[in-house]
């Protein structure tokens, strides 16, 4: 019988790799019996979606950001100094 700790591992890893037959079966039985782990399953799902939303938002926000003229100038200088030869 899986413990909650084992089951939580499997629920987490299920997001990363396909589970084997025994793992899937063990998890199904455990979830059937365990309300806490069913909650964890829902929380994982929600966290994953929310994190992905954070990512989309961060990318969208960055669209308004440009290199400052000063930063461009610094990079231009570095290219002139270091670009021509191998380090």
């Amino acid at each position: 019988m899986l413990t909650c700790k084992d089951a939580s591992h499997l629920l987490s890893e299920r997001q990363e790799r396909p589970l084997g037959f025994r793992e899937r079966w063990g998890l199904r039985v455990h979830l059937w019996l365990c309300a806490n782990c069913r909650k964890f399953e829902r929380q994982l799902d929600l966290m994953r979606k929310a994190l992905s939303t954070l990512g989309r938002r961060a990318k969208a926000e960055s669209q308004g950001v440009d290199l400052t003229p000063e930063a461009r100038e610094r990079i231009r200088k570095a290219l002139a100094e270091r670009g021509g030869h191998e380090d």
Binding site: N36, K39, F40, K49
Partner: peptide, 27 residues
């Protein structure tokens, strides 16, 4: 987790996932 592998505390119910996702505070 407790030493026996059970959750050490009852997990909270986060409510309706769609509403949580639309809630700026959650993010």
């Amino acid at each position: 987790f407790a030493p026996d592998g059970h959750w050490s505390a009852r997990l909270a119910d986060w409510g309706d996932p769609m509403r949580a996702l639309e809630n700026a505070q959650f993010l």
